[in-house]
């Protein structure tokens, strides 16, 4: 469904992604793990067309994403929840959702379905997005991405800085979307949280896609984590937030 082949991206002269490849089916949750600066966020931006690929192919079903201008990519059915949420913080909750709906001409029915997932937002519709709590902001960012009724969802560190209850809400949403057939790429620092929802873990190192393993393998053998994510992660510390 979502396919990345031989992707090379640069910031100026610095190569950030090297021959990156991944493949994702509908209803699959792929968790991307790697060190800071490994290229995780850049990969998501490249899929969205926000960082232009110098070479390589990006396809969603039959649509060739790499040929499209950035604003046409989400219209193919990709919802993006950027790192740090990037809400339109001076607009109201309702306006933020409206922007999500407008991307693919969705209307009240879609909004209703999204609000069932995040009922808290319903009481906050007229409030400025910047005044929400961290958890509510993340829900809004996720809800805004879901307003596109995406086939594929890109989540960049959605649990960063959240309380445990809010993390549970976000992860439950990912599970629910998985059941509805949405393909999800999850960039996550909380390894344990990631392991509970992911079908597959893909390691990324220096902009290259490396091994891809099942979550069970990782639980039994944390050496991979040690190698790709960093020396600070030991088995007993899995799930403790790293910064």
């Amino acid at each position: 469904m979502l396919r990345v082949e031989g992707l090379n991206c640069f910031y100026g002269n610095v190569q950030v992604l090297r021959d990156f490849a991944l493949e994702l089916k509908g209803g699959e949750v792929l968790c991307l793990l790697g060190r800071n600066g490994a290229g995780k966020t850049t990969l998501l931006k490249a899929i969205m067309g926000l960082v232009r690929a110098r070479s390589g192919r990006l396809t969603l079903d039959d649509a060739e994403l790499s040929a499209l201008p950035a604003h046409a990519v989400p219209r193919q059915g990709i919802g993006y929840c950027p790192q740090g949420r990037r809400l339109f913080s001076e607009l109201t909750v309702e306006e933020n959702l409206q922007i999500g709906l407008m991307a693919r001409d969705r209307g009240a029915a879609t909004l209703e379905r999204v609000l069932i997932l995040f009922p808290v937002l319903r009481e906050r519709m007229r409030q400025r997005a910047g005044t929400l709590s961290g958890g509510e902001q993340q829900m809004l960012a996720t809800a805004r991405a879901l307003c596109l009724e995406p086939k594929a969802l890109l989540l960049d560190e959605p649990t960063e800085g959240l309380m445990p209850s809010a993390i549970t809400t976000i992860l439950n949403t990912v599970r629910r979307l998985k059941a509805e057939g949405v393909a999800t790429i999850l960039v996550e620092q909380r390894v344990e949280a990631a392991l509970t929802v992911a079908d597959r873990i893909l390691f990324i190192e220096n902009g290259r896609s490396c091994e891809s393993v099942a979550p069970d393998v990782l639980r039994d053998d944390p050496r991979l984590l040690h190698h790709y994510v960093g020396v600070g992660v030991k088995r007993e510390r899995l799930g403790v937030q790293r910064s």
């Binding site: 926000l50 046409a72 339109f88 913080s89 306006e95 409206q98 991307a103």
Partner: peptide, 24 residues
């Protein structure tokens, strides 16, 4: 208006606006 909303979204964060289909 919707057009105004699109303008304000572009003003606050043009990159994210693009990620939501706004032709900046």
């Amino acid at each position: 208006t919707k057009l105004g909303l699109v303008m304000r979204a572009t003003q606050f964060d043009s990159e994210t606006a693009q990620a939501f289909g706004i032709p900046v």
